[in-house]
């Protein structure tokens, strides 16, 4: 069951093609990560889905009576309202019953870790607190779809972890579509990946699907210094590349396996620190996708 289906969605600003023929679906209760370089059209896409922008052409099918929560990348608040006043207003404007709105706002603020400062003016909030408040206003009316534009990018590592856990706890009842450039986090919470570049969907699928398409496993040999890595790359019989003080060998069908590498290293007197086989991270895939198309 899909909560949202997008067909050949296009947005032009003057002559600039911000989003170009986008199509995807969001399954109920799933998490979808929208990734891509700056200016790929992520924010424009989310704004259209949130109903802030009209699409130039194309079609967004929302499930009937779909309620949406939206967190912009840089949420901006009325500084003269307290966190509780703002969240309560957000709930009421989203149709929550007046009597329940305050209660729900209090609970949500506690949930995002702002319970202690609920009655403080937003004007005095730090960037991280505003990000959490942004999350609170997006989910206070318990929407079935959350659209989050870079929800964790501006948080410190602890905050990131907490917010990720919090979002994960929502999955199931809530469908989440979020953009991010922190790919480690995307790896952790994603049922579907959407790679955007120049407004086009250049790659999509589950993490495993995408990985199997791009992920040539590789062997990383770490040396004590760059010199050694360079010597290895020059002298070894396999195509390899230097990366810092390490040499990387792509493992292809005709390429070497671990044992070949060990055998080779045992006869050479190179200052090896470690050898490991790794599958490509989302970051590697990202770089390949961006470079490839």
């Amino acid at each position: 069951m899909n909560v949202l289906e997008v067909r050949s969605l296009t947005k032009r600003f003057g002559t600039e093609q911000a989003v170009d023929g986008l199509g995807f679906e969001l399954a109920e209760g799933s998490a979808t990560a929208l990734i891509g370089p700056n200016g790929a059209g992520k924010t424009t896409t989310l704004s259209m889905l949130a109903g802030l922008l009209e699409a130039t052409t194309g079609d967004i099918q929302r499930k009937k009576n779909l309620s949406i929560g939206f967190l912009p990348q840089y949420p901006r608040f009325f500084p003269w309202l307290s966190a509780l006043e703002f969240t309560e207003m957000a709930a009421k404007l989203s149709g929550v019953d007046s009597k329940k709105a305050r209660q729900q706002a209090e609970r949500t603020l506690g949930f995002v870790g702002l319970g202690q400062v609920a009655n403080k003016k937003i004007g005095g909030f730090s960037g991280g607190m505003k990000q959490r408040l942004g999350l609170a206003q997006a989910m206070v009316h318990q929407p079935s779809l959350l659209l989050l534009d870079e929800p964790i990018s501006s948080l410190d590592p602890t905050g990131r972890r907490e917010v990720m856990e919090l979002l994960k706890s929502l999955l199931g009842q809530t469908t989440i579509l979020y953009s991010t450039h922190i790919l480690n986090d995307a790896e952790e919470m994603t049922d579907q990946l959407l790679f955007l570049q120049n407004g086009r969907l250049v790659e999509h699928g589950s993490l495993n699907q995408v990985r199997s398409r791009y992920a040539d496993p590789q062997i990383r040999i770490r040396f004590e210094n760059t010199n050694a890595a360079e010597r290895f790359v020059h002298e070894s019989p396999w195509p390899a590349a230097v990366q810092g003080t390490a040499a990387i060998i792509a493992v292809k069908a005709e390429g070497p396996i671990m044992q070949d590498v060990f055998r080779y290293l045992s006869v050479k007197s190179l200052p090896v620190v470690g050898v490991e086989q790794e599958t490509a991270s989302l970051e590697d895939i990202f770089l390949k996708v961006v470079a490839g198309k």
Binding site: G51, I68, Y74, R76, A90, S94, Q137
Partner: peptide, 13 residues
């Protein structure tokens, strides 16, 4: 202009 309206406009206002 300062973006505070965004969080109002995303609701069924």
């Amino acid at each position: 202009r300062n973006g505070t309206a965004t969080l109002l406009y995303v609701r069924p206002l």
